[in-house]
Each structure stands twice: as C-alpha cells, then as structure tokens.
Computed example of a mutant assay.
Amino acid sequence: MNLPNAPGVPPCPAWEHGVLRTERLELTPLRVEHAEEMAGVLADPALYGFTGGTPDSADALRERYRRLVAGSPDPLTVWHNRVLRLRDGGRLVGTVQATVTASGSAAEVAWVVGVPWQGRGLATEAAREWIAWLTGRGARTIIAHIHPGHRASAAVAAACGLAPTGERQDGEIRWRLSASSDQASSTYHCRTDLPRT
C-alpha cells in the first residue's frame, strides 16, 4: 500500500510490488491464496512456544490474510507482509512483516520460519533483505520485539544489526536498529557480509 497523500512520503509504487530475492529465497507480497500452503508451514505447535497461541487452520489464516492484504485501518500506518519462498523448489517456508509509520521513518518488523526449515540461516537471510529494503526506502529506525528466552530470534536480530534495549512490551525485549541517513537513502540490497544464523 502506498500513502501518496501522507505528509513527507513521496509516492513509491514499489513499496508493495515486486519480489525481493536473496541467494536462497524470494520474498513475495502476501496474497490470500498463500493461506493453504502457509497453514502447513505454520502447523507445528513448537513454533508458538515463545509467542503463545496455536496454529491457525487454513480457513482462519485465509481470513487473517484478507485483513492483512486489505491494509491497516489506521491511515497513518502501512502493513507490509511477504511470504518466504525457497528459490530451489518453490516451497513456502515462512513470512516477514513490517508495520511502517506514515512518514516511513520507523518500521516494526517480525519474521517466522516454519520448524522444518529452521537452523539453516533462512530467517537471517530473509530479515537482512527485509531490513535493507525498508532502510533503502527511508526507514531510519527498525524495531523488533523478542521474547527474552528466544535465543534463535535474538541471534537473527543481532545478525541484522539490531541491539536489545532496556524497554519491554508485553514481556518481550525491544530490539532497535537506528540506520544512518546513508543507509536510509541507499538502494536496498541483500547483505551477504554478515555470518548466517
């Protein structure tokens, strides 16, 4: 979704369109039709050990995706959601999400990779590309909320340059990356100079 009428936000038709590519993944804009396959990706109850909740059925996920694709009801907030597709084989394996302020200067991010594909560095690879894409479009502050016991997610955040703060929200630690103005105005790219997690 583009916010062409928001103060200080230049029109950017590429905000939602196009596929981002990394070495092993395609980050594809979320569609309602992804719900069936994603229900299988997100089906393992172990995935909810730190976040709470239970796996959604394909029907429940379809309804959720309809709401996400429709966009935020708050005109000052934009939702960006992508599914992660393996370039080799085309299988969906997870998602990345961002909630961006109307000014585009701050983005709250999240990532999830299905249990069978964890431990391969896919979350780090996706999150790096996602954060680079967001900072390349002007986001100067990137925030993630991570459960204090979720070491794997903390490792992904650290590999992407985020650092824990003393702030907490709903029991989770707020991690933050403050991008330089050079990062925030550069063209996005896949960072390959950081170790895989």
Rank of each mutant, 00 (worst) to 15 (best):
L92S: 01
H150C: 02
N2W: 05
T22E: 07
G90W: 06
V41W: 03
L3T: 10
A179D: 04
P73A: 11
G40L: 10
G52H: 08
G49M: 10
V93A: 01
H17G: 09
E125Y: 00
A157M: 09
R85G: 09
P7A: 09
D59Y: 03
A184T: 03
G40K: 07
A159K: 14
W111A: 09
R176W: 05
V113P: 03
R62M: 04
E125D: 10
V109D: 01
T22C: 11
A126K: 02
S185M: 10
D170H: 14
N5R: 13
A106C: 13
T141V: 15
S103W: 01
S105I: 11
R120Y: 13
T135N: 04
A35Y: 10
R191W: 12
R66Y: 07
L162G: 01
A152N: 08
P45E: 04
D88A: 15
L68Q: 15
T22R: 10
H34F: 00
G138M: 03
W175T: 01
N2C: 11
R31G: 07
R64S: 13
R137K: 13
V93P: 01
A70W: 02
E63A: 13
G40V: 05
G121E: 05
R85C: 12
H80Y: 12
R91H: 11
P4A: 06
W111M: 00
V19F: 07
R174C: 03
W175F: 11
I146S: 03
R151M: 07
C12S: 13
R137S: 06
V32P: 04
E129F: 03
E125H: 05
S178L: 15
L122I: 11
E63S: 12
P116I: 00
A152S: 14
R151A: 15
A179P: 09
D56F: 09
H147V: 04
W117M: 12
L134F: 08
A98D: 01
P7C: 09
E36R: 15
A157Q: 06
Q118V: 09
E36C: 07
G136K: 00
E23V: 11
A155V: 07
P73V: 10
S185Y: 02
G119K: 12
A184G: 06
T135C: 12
L25T: 04
R67Y: 07
G49T: 15
E125S: 11
E16A: 14
A154G: 11
E23A: 14
A154F: 05
S181T: 15
A158V: 11
L194Y: 08
L68D: 14
H34P: 05
T22K: 11
T197F: 09
R82A: 13
L86S: 04
A58D: 03
T28N: 00
A126V: 10
E129N: 08
D193T: 14
C12M: 12
T192A: 13
S185R: 14
L122E: 08
A6W: 15
A107M: 04
A144W: 01
E63Q: 12
V109G: 02
T22F: 06
S153Y: 11
E16F: 10
Y48H: 12
V83Q: 04
E26T: 02
P7S: 09
V93S: 01
H145G: 08
